[in-house]
């Protein structure tokens, strides 16, 4: 069992992430973000978590990102937005964030080196969907419940915002609307 798939997927993810930040056109950036998510799914798969990999594609790449693309399409961005984006991406702007990210990378590497090594990759077995399910509704049932609360709250607020106010308004046109 080699690490080659893992390394390849990681390289693609890193390259695509760089492309996300540097694109002028919003839809192109979003497409590269989809590539990032797909290669992350590949990384999960290479690490022996096929269930997480598939959920990454279905939920993030397949649902969340489609909605992002949908919104950007609705906004109908033109040449002026592209120019503004390019203006924001002027070379001088990069210096600060690059320094900070470099510091973060160094700190991360140092911390990871200080940690004791975990078991080798040869002892890791892939975790199938059944195991994940048993774990989710066993030791982690509290987090599942909390996540479902959060989703319910999101659903209720989306319903509240998207509600058709004419149907409940006092001076609605329902009585006279059909004239």
């Amino acid at each position: 069992m080699s690490d080659l798939p893992f390394i390849l997927f990681s390289l693609v993810a890193a390259w695509a992430a760089i492309m996300v930040v540097t694109r002028d056109i919003a839809v192109h950036a979003l497409l590269y973000l989809v590539v990032v998510l797909l290669s992350l799914a590949g990384v999960f798969f290479a690490l022996g978590a096929p269930f997480a990999a598939m959920l990454e594609i279905i939920i993030y790449a397949g649902a969340v990102m489609v909605l992002f693309v949908f919104v950007v399409m609705m906004l109908n961005l033109g040449q002026t937005d592209r120019d503004r984006e390019r203006h924001w991406m002027a070379p001088g702007v990069w210096i600060g964030p690059t320094l900070l990210s470099g510091l973060l990378l160094i700190a991360l590497c140092l911390t990871l080196r200080a940690m004791p090594p975990t078991t080798g990759s040869d002892t890791l077995a892939p975790i199938g969907p059944q195991t994940v399910g048993i774990l989710l509704y066993g030791p982690y049932v509290l987090s599942v419940e909390l996540a479902s609360f959060l989703l319910l709250a999101g659903l209720v607020s989306a319903f509240h915002i998207g509600r058709d106010t004419r149907a409940t308004g006092v001076n609605s046109g329902t009585a006279t609307g059909d004239v």
Binding site: M54, I57, A61, G62
Partner: peptide, 8 residues
């Protein structure tokens, strides 16, 4: 799940 992912 793979089929659903590809449909997505």
């Amino acid at each position: 799940l793979f089929v659903l992912a590809m449909m997505g």
